[in-house]
Amino acid sequence: MEYRTQIIKTLKSLVHTRNLLFGNVLNIATAGELRDIMDAFEEGDSYDFQLEHVADLKDPNIKKLVHLIKQVEELYEEIKDTNNILSEELEEQETGEDSDNTDEWQGELPF
């Protein structure tokens, strides 16, 4: 497999990893500090949580995970910029035969 293709796959893996970590942060937060807020929602309600919504929580585990997520985001940008990877290339890779089932992938940085 070509080097550039491997870099693109790595970028997609970083997006997937970031999304998994963020999901874990939300699960911890909604079981802890955000529990009261979650009680206000009814079944079927949805809310588009962003990293900013949990960044100031007091839970030390959440703080560490938020820090890690920010590092993953920075690494993504650094690798993308260092290798001059275009958004179009990321989208092409996703629709190609080598797709790796990262269903969160949007082509653009999704965070």
Results as ranks from 00 to 15, higher is better:
Met1Leu: 04
Tyr3Ile: 07
Arg4Lys: 15
Arg4Leu: 05
Thr5Gly: 05
Ile7Pro: 01
Lys9Thr: 01
Lys9Gln: 09
Thr10Ala: 08
Thr10Glu: 10
Lys12His: 15
Lys12Pro: 00
Ser13Leu: 11
Leu14Ile: 13
Val15Ala: 12
Val15Tyr: 06
His16Leu: 14
Arg18Asp: 09
Asn19Ile: 09
Asn19Cys: 10
Phe22Thr: 03
Phe22Ala: 03
Gly23Gln: 11
Gly23Trp: 04
Asn24Arg: 11
Asn24Trp: 07
Val25Met: 14
Val25Gly: 02
Val25Asn: 03
Asn27Met: 11
Ala29Pro: 01
Ala29Asp: 04
Thr30Ile: 11
Ala31Arg: 12
Ala31Met: 09
Gly32Trp: 02
Glu33His: 06
Glu33Phe: 03
Glu33Thr: 05
Leu34Arg: 02
Leu34Thr: 01
Arg35Leu: 07
Arg35Val: 05
Asp36Asn: 09
Asp39Met: 09
Ala40Trp: 03
Ala40Glu: 13
Phe41His: 10
Phe41Leu: 08
Glu43Arg: 07
Gly44Gln: 04
Ser46Gly: 04
Ser46Thr: 14
Tyr47Ser: 02
Tyr47Phe: 15
Tyr47His: 11
Tyr47Pro: 00
Phe49Leu: 06
Gln50Trp: 02
Leu51Lys: 06
Leu51Trp: 06
Leu51Ile: 15
Glu52Asn: 11
Glu52Met: 07
His53Lys: 02
His53Arg: 02
Val54Ala: 08
Val54Met: 08
Ala55Trp: 01
Asp56Pro: 00
Asp56Glu: 11
Asp56Phe: 10
Leu57Trp: 05
Asp59Pro: 00
Ile62Cys: 03
Lys63Ser: 10
Lys64Tyr: 08
Lys64Cys: 02
Leu65Tyr: 10
Val66Asn: 03
Val66Ile: 15
Ile69Trp: 05
Ile69Asp: 03
Lys70Asn: 15
Lys70His: 11
Lys70Val: 03
Gln71Met: 09
Val72Arg: 01
Val72Gly: 00
Glu73Asn: 12
Glu73Trp: 00
Glu74Tyr: 06
Leu75Phe: 08
Leu75Asn: 10
Tyr76Ile: 07
Glu77Arg: 12
Glu78Ser: 10
Glu78Tyr: 07
Glu78Lys: 14
Ile79Asp: 03
Ile79Met: 15
Ile79Phe: 09
Asp81Glu: 13
Thr82Glu: 15
Asn83Thr: 02
Asn83Ile: 01
Ile85Tyr: 06
Leu86Ile: 02
Ser87Arg: 08
Glu88Gly: 02
Glu88Thr: 12
Glu89Pro: 03
Glu89Phe: 12
Glu92Gly: 00
Gln93Asn: 13
Gln93Ile: 02
Glu94Cys: 09
Glu94Thr: 06
Glu94His: 10
Glu94Tyr: 14
Thr95Gly: 06
Gly96Gln: 01
Asp98Met: 06
Asp98Arg: 05
Asp98Glu: 14
Asn101Met: 11
Asn101Gly: 12
Asn101Ser: 13
Asp103Trp: 13
Asp103Glu: 13
Glu104Tyr: 14
Glu104Asn: 12
Trp105Tyr: 15
Gly107Gln: 07
Glu108Val: 10
Leu109Trp: 12
Leu109Gln: 13
Leu109Phe: 15
Phe111Ala: 11
Phe111Thr: 05
